[in-house]
């Protein structure tokens, strides 16, 4: 079993390499400059592909993305979506679509805020003016958690089920690449990628913590049915 899996990984690697060679060849043929790609293979410590990892690249001097207005709603006692990526300066509203109140808060350094017990429309708009990871919680529901990733770049990607994430159209010679995942232990992984030599291929290993969080209760009835 182990042999099979390692073989398949080898095959995958070989396949990726082939594709890289093909890409270089293609780039060379096209002769286009300033359109590099960073292709990441995100895995956990056991080598299992990690989906939903957020990957972004900051290229000094590149144009800043325009701020956006987004919503993170509370529905069925959950935050939706669980992860939101926004450019710096964006405004987020937190409407409560449940029939109970919520108390949304953040103790994160990137943005601390507190929206005490409310229901219905968001009591205010929160402007996220610093890049970083913001963890949202609800004071009265332990299991409710969500993240807002505030980035200072338009180059953002999310890993798919096979752990692959591709940042395209990177114009520049260097890029600071960061990888983050909701279950990542500690700060986002970052490094400087040299874009001059063409597309960057990289396998990123994330130290993930177990999914320890309590699952939300099924319904209003609780355990008494």
């Amino acid at each position: 079993m182990a042999t099979t899996s390692s073989n398949s990984r080898c095959a995958l690697l070989f396949d990726t390499r082939l594709r890289a060679v093909a890409a270089i060849l293609a780039a060379g043929l096209l002769g286009g400059a300033g359109a590099a790609e960073v292709r990441l293979d995100v895995r956990d410590e056991k080598g299992v592909p990690v989906a939903d990892a957020i990957v972004w690249a900051e290229i000094p001097g590149s144009k800043r993305p325009a701020p956006r207005d987004v919503e993170v709603v509370q529905k069925q006692r959950l935050f939706l979506p669980p992860v939101t990526v926004i450019p710096v300066g964006s405004t987020v509203r937190f409407p409560n679509r449940d029939d109970v109140q919520h108390h949304v808060y953040s103790f994160s350094k990137a943005k601390k805020f507190d929206l005490p017990l409310y229901i219905g429309e968001s009591p205010g708009e929160i402007v996220f003016d610093r890049p970083g990871i913001v963890t949202l919680g609800c004071n009265i529901h332990d299991w409710m958690a969500a993240h807002i990733v505030v980035v200072d770049t338009p180059f953002v990607a999310t890993s798919n089920d096979s752990g692959a994430a591709v940042l395209r159209s990177l114009a520049g010679s260097q890029a600071i690449v960061r990888v983050w995942h909701p279950r990542l232990r500690g700060e986002p992984i970052e490094w400087v990628a040299d874009l001059v030599r063409g597309p960057v291929e990289r396998t990123v290993t994330l130290k993930l913590r177990p999914d320890f969080r309590r699952t939300p209760p099924d319904s209003e009835g609780g355990t008494y049915r």
């Binding site: 103790f107 963890t135 949202l136 919680g137 609800c138 332990d142 409710m144 958690a145 913590r209 320890f212 969080r213």
Partner: peptide, 9 residues
């Protein structure tokens, strides 16, 4: 136990 805020802090 981890202090949850709501991620381990």
């Amino acid at each position: 136990h981890p202090l949850l805020a709501p991620d381990p802090a």
